[in-house]
Design a protein around this nucleic acid. Structure first.
Lengths: 210, 210
DNA sequence: GGAGTTCGATACAACGCTGTATCCGATACA
DNA sequence: TGTATCGGATACAGCGTTGTATCGAACTCC
C-alpha cells in the first residue's frame, strides 16, 4: 500500500527521512487540516524538498494513511502501558479523576486532539482510513474496558453496562470534552484539568451505578 | 463579514441563488470535506458558474461561515420544536429510547453528521467558526437540559448531575455514536437505530441514577 | 416602452500545486 | 581508490483553481 512499485531498501537514513516527514505532516495537518495542507508545506516543515517526499511516499493520501496508523497505534500503546502500571500499582479505584489523568498520553496535547479529529474526519469518507481507525479504536476500548473491569473487581461492583460499553462512553466523553476545550481556546493546562474533571465525573456515574 | 463592501440589494432572486449555493456547498463539503472542495465544484453542483458565486460571497470561507451558522441554527431550531411538542404532549418519560428518537432532525442524516463534523473540525482552528459554534451549541444544551429537567420533574427525581451537565453528556454521546456509525459504514436506518439505542442507554444511566 | 440597474455568464491572467525526469553528492562496498 | 547505488535536490511541464473584469440578458421603475 505505502510501498512503492519498485521495493526500495530500508536503510537507516531512509527511515529517518520518513520519520521526519511524518512528524512534519502531523504538525501541518493539525494546524491547517488535511485538505488545505500541501505536500510542499509538509516538506518545507521537514526541511526537505518534494524530491525527498516522492522518493518516500506515493502521495499525500499514502502518507496520511501511514501517519494515521502510526499515530493511533502510539496512542493505544501509550494507554496500554499506563493501564498496565495502574493495575499492578493497585491505584485507588475511587479516585476516578486520578485514574483519568493517568490516561493522558505524553506529548503535545493540542496537536494530538487536532490530529485525531482529522483522522476521524477522514475515516468517515475513506475506507482505508476507516479500517485502520476501527481496528485501533477497538484495541483502545479493550484496554480501557480492562481497566474498568479491574476497578469493578477491586470494588466488588457489578454494572448494568458491560465494561466495553462503559469504556466506549468514557472514550467518547474524552474526545468530546477535548474538542470542546480546543474550540473554546483553552490552554493546555486547563484542557487537561477540564478533561480529567468531566471524564472523571462520567466515570463516577458509571462506577457508582452498581 | 459575509456582507460585500458595496452593500448589495436583497432581492428575492438573490436570496434564491444564495440558498442554492449554500445547499450545494453543504453537499459538497459533506462529501469531500471543506479543504478539498473547490469553489468551482460547489458552483457546478448548484448549476451556476463562479460568476454567481463571487457575486454573492467573498470567498469559500465566507460561504462556509454562513453555512455553518445557518446549519447549526436549523439543528437547534428543529430540536427546539421537538422538545416543545414532547413536553406538552407529556410523553412517557421512562421511554428514553423514544425520547431520543424524537430528537432526530429531519433531512439527510448522513449529510448532517458529516457536515457537523466538518464544522466542528473547522471550529477548532477558526475563531469565527468557533464563536458561532459555541453560541449555538449552548442553545442546544439548554434545549436538551430543559427536556431532561422536565423528565426529572415528571418522575420526581433529583440528579447528581445538573441538567446542563446531563445534556452535554447526552449530546456528546449522540455525536460520538453518529460518527462511529458513519465510519463503520452503517446505512441510515441502522445508524438511527444504533443511535437511539446507545444514547437511550446513556439517558437511562443518567435518569436512573437518582 | 425606454433607461437604468442587477445578476449571472464568459473570458482571462496569474498563481500554486502536483508529479516526473534528471542530476549530483554521499555512502557503501569491493 | 574506484565503482555502483542510493537519496534527495533541482528543473520543468501541465493542470486546476482563484479572483477579476467585462459583457449581455432580464427585470424594475418611472
Amino acid at each position: 500500500m505505502s510501498q512503492p512499485d519498485v521495493a526500495k531498501p530500508v536503510t537507516r537514513s531512509r527511515e529517518n527521512t520518513r520519520a521526519r516527514l511524518l512528524d512534519a505532516a502531523a504538525q501541518v495537518f493539525a494546524e491547517v487540516g488535511l485538505g488545505e495542507a500541501s505536500v510542499e508545506a509538509v516538506c518545507e516543515r521537514a526541511g526537505f524538498t518534494r524530491g525527498a517526499f516522492y522518493s518516500n511516499f506515493e502521495s499525500k493520501d499514502d502518507l496520511f494513511l501511514e501517519l494515521a496508523g502510526r499515530f493511533v497505534s502510539q496512542q493505544v500503546e501509550a494507554v496500554r502501558e499506563r493501564v498496565a502500571t495502574l493495575i499492578e500499582s493497585g491505584a485507588d479505584a475511587t479516585d476516578t479523576v486520578g485514574l483519568v489523568e493517568a490516561l493522558d498520553v505524553p506529548g503535545d496535547v493540542r496537536l494530538g486532539v487536532l490530529l485525531m479529529s482529522e483522522i476521524r474526519n477522514r475515516a468517515m469518507r475513506d475506507e482505508k482510513v476507516a479500517e485502520a481507525f476501527i481496528a485501533q479504536d477497538e484495541s483502545m476500548v479493550r484496554e480501557v474496558a480492562q481497566l474498568i473491569e479491574d476497578i469493578a473487581h477491586a470494588k466488588r461492583l457489578r454494572f448494568a453496562l458491560s465494561p466495553e460499553e462503559a469504556a466506549r462512553i468514557v472514550l467518547t466523553a474524552w474526545e468530546g470534552v477535548s474538542s470542546r476545550a480546543i474550540i473554546a481556546g483553552l490552554p493546555e493546562k486547563e484542557l487537561l484539568e477540564l478533561r480529567a474533571r468531566e471524564v472523571g465525573r462520567i466515570g463516577h456515574l458509571i462506577v457508582e451505578q452498581g
